[in-house]
């Protein structure tokens, strides 16, 4: 991406001491930033009683009981069920965002039509709109339609390109593709659909990948949507399943199980991050900059 390839950064502290201080500073920030993540790994191997009060990061006698407890599930629901549900939700969201946002972005970036600029402004406007204004009427609407306790309210917006951020990201990307490609395609007799499918989409792969990963992670982490729309524990996503470990009615939560489940719930996101961090960071960087 062009944003990352322009000029070099200002080179200032070339001297040894400067370099040492630089690394010390960076490592200090790193230690503080990563502490919670390392902590949760260590804590998941501690007995419940030691989790809060023991300061040693990794227990001298690690136990697997917390994870074994996960294998038993919670309230006759297998933990895997939550993961399946989250995968379904996140996967469905990814497909929806990729299809609907890229179509919309193509129209904004590559087709001239009446009212395009107005619609583009409206689209950007929704980016700044607080979701809570829509929350209640949307809830009422889905409730009247009998769609509460289904995944429809959670997913429908993804298929209708309401994720303005990704539309915007793709528009930015498509605008930077050379115009000549379309012209050539048109001379070959390609309609918009062919141009979109065979020429623009393949070239947009980086933007599509970035959008897909962000969508996946956002859906995976989503809390308020499932909290409001899902009623049945068997339909819960990981976020809500996790709350079940904390929740108590009569008996306090299984603290060790909760921490172990927290770790397991974070793993997919962390793995995604390790695998695709370049796409994520470049995507993030380009959202603020136009190449």
């Amino acid at each position: 991406m062009s944003a990352t390839t322009t000029t070099k950064p200002p080179v200032l502290g070339r001297r040894r001491t400067g370099s040492l201080a630089w690394h010390l500073g960076a490592l200090l920030v790193l230690a503080i930033i990563l502490y919670p993540v390392v902590w949760v790994v260590g804590a998941s191997f501690k007995p419940s009683k030691d989790i809060v009060n023991s300061l040693t990061l990794f227990p001298s006698h690690p136990i697997l009981a917390n994870f074994k407890g996960l294998a038993d599930g919670i309230a006759d629901i297998r933990v895997w069920t939550f993961f399946q549900n989250s995968l379904l939700y996140a996967g469905g969201a990814v497909v929806g965002v990729l299809v609907s946002c890229s179509l919309t972005a193509y129209a904004f970036a590559r087709i001239l039509f009446a009212g395009r600029n107005l619609l583009f402004s409206l689209m950007i406007g929704t980016l700044l709109l607080p979701y809570h204004v829509l929350l209640i009427p949307q809830y009422v609407m889905f409730q009247k339609l009998g769609l509460v306790n289904t995944y429809v309210p959670l997913l429908v917006g993804k298929y209708l390109a309401t994720e303005a951020f990704f539309v915007f990201l793709m528009v930015q990307f498509m605008r930077n593709l050379p115009r000549e490609l379309d012209e050539a395609a048109r001379l070959d007799g390609c309609g918009h659909l062919r141009t979109y499918w065979s020429i623009v989409l393949p070239l947009c792969r980086p933007a599509l990948i970035t959008s897909a990963i962000f969508t996946f992670i956002n859906a995976w982490n989503d809390f308020m949507g499932p909290l409001i729309y899902l009623n049945e524990p068997g339909k819960y996503t990981v976020s809500l399943g996790l709350m079940m470990f904390r929740d108590s009615d009569g008996v306090a939560a299984n603290y060790g199980g909760m921490i172990a489940m927290s770790l397991v719930a974070l793993l997919p996101v962390l793995l995604f991050f390790l695998a695709f961090q370049r796409y994520l960071i470049d995507g993030m960087a380009t959202s603020g900059l136009k190449g």
Binding site: I74, A75, D76, P233, M244, D247, S248, D249, G250, V251, N254
Partner: peptide, 9 residues
């Protein structure tokens, strides 16, 4: 109903 794991089982 409301409750937690034990009651569910």
């Amino acid at each position: 109903w409301w409750g937690a794991e034990e009651r569910a089982k």
